[in-house]
């Protein structure tokens, strides 16, 4: 009960943000929420299945591409376009899942890099549909009610809250527990009679679904997509947010997304070398803080609890 009250307060505080912030910062907060959903979808796999993926940016980008294409080229309304985007991302994730479930550890990561690059290659070269380097631009994609950035922020907040709840339920469901079992010992789970590849496949597809939701929201937020949106850098950024927040903490992704996006925003004021900064953050996180902010806090709390 206390916990639910705390979450309600956090949600209310987040909902009150647009009343305090400038319009520029409302956009920034919207972006943080969208990327937090992406980072959480990565954390579902990395933290609870033990599979670190570097193709979620591509899955995210597929949804963005499909939504903008459906809206700008095929003239669909917002809702069906969004549904198509999420569906496409889920299908791509399912296809990737079929291939990737047979691998683990570094091999899994390697394969997801390659799969993500395929998406990028197709988006870059298939110029008749994707517009190649120039990308696709949507126009007035949001329904009238959501044109105001505060309204759009509230919608994204609601969707992000729903997604967080969904993912939290997923990883704590009996199915999610068996995924954790696979993370800890694949052979034990197999010996217990669990269908490991099927579990991994479903886990991957579910995670891809949520990445797709984030990508579809991003389409309405940005109204523009180019191969950069599906490039590896996108997957890298998403993974970094999950790691900085703390792998396996799920909600740490919000902290991670906020940290990375605010850092990007600050750094961009001073220099164009954001990519270097991102790389350095990666290097330093790996060396000094592999368990991330929330993970580190939890460990601190746990060690305090023990000494007492």
């Amino acid at each position: 009960m206390k916990r639910q009250l705390a979450w309600l307060l956090v949600l209310l505080a987040a909902a009150a943000l647009p009343l305090l912030l400038s319009s520029y910062h409302v956009d920034l907060a919207t972006r943080i929420l969208i990327f937090a959903v992406l980072a959480m979808s990565i954390d579902v796999l990395a933290g609870f299945v033990g599979r670190t993926s570097l193709c979620h940016g591509a899955i995210f980008g597929v949804a963005t591409y499909v939504v903008i294409w459906a809206s700008a080229k095929a003239g669909w309304a917002a809702l069906p376009a969004m549904a198509a985007g999420v569906l496409a991302a889920t299908l791509v994730a399912a296809l990737f899942g079929v291939l990737a479930v047979r691998t683990r550890g570094v091999y899994f990561l390697l394969l997801t890099v390659a799969l993500g690059m395929v998406v990028w290659g197709v988006c870059l070269r298939w110029t008749t549909v994707t517009g190649g380097e120039n990308g696709l631009r949507g126009q007035d994609m949001r329904p009238a009610l959501l044109v105001a950035r505060e309204n759009f922020y509230w919608l994204v907040l609601a969707v992000a809250a729903l997604c967080s709840w969904g993912m939290w339920r997923f990883v704590n469901s009996p199915f999610g527990l068996s995924l954790r079992g696979i993370r800890d010992s694949e052979s034990r789970m197999r010996a217990l009679g669990y269908n490991v590849p099927l579990h991994l496949f479903v886990g991957f597809a579910v995670s891809g679904f949520f990445a797709g939701v984030a990508g579809a929201m991003y389409a309405f937020f940005n109204e523009y997509v180019s191969p950069t949106s599906v490039a590896m850098a996108q997957s890298v950024a998403g993974l970094l947010m999950a790691i900085v927040g703390g792998v396996g903490t799920l909600f740490g992704s919000f902290i991670g997304a906020a940290a990375i996006i605010l850092l990007e925003n600050t750094v961009s004021w001073y220099t164009d070398r954001w990519q270097s900064v991102l790389g350095l953050v990666f290097i330093f996180t790996m060396i000094f803080a592999p368990e991330g902010i929330l993970g580190g806090l939890r460990r601190l709390a746990a060690s305090k609890g023990r000494t007492r």
């Binding site: 670190t52 990561l109 993974l239 790691i243 990519q275 270097s276 790389g279 990666f282």
Partner: peptide
């Protein structure tokens, strides 16, 4: 293993930039 990979990824970003 995994930290090595991700660290090399960071190095790739920096070198490329």
């Amino acid at each position: 293993e995994l930290r090595q990979v991700l660290l090399s990824l960071g190095v790739a970003l920096v070198l490329n930039d």
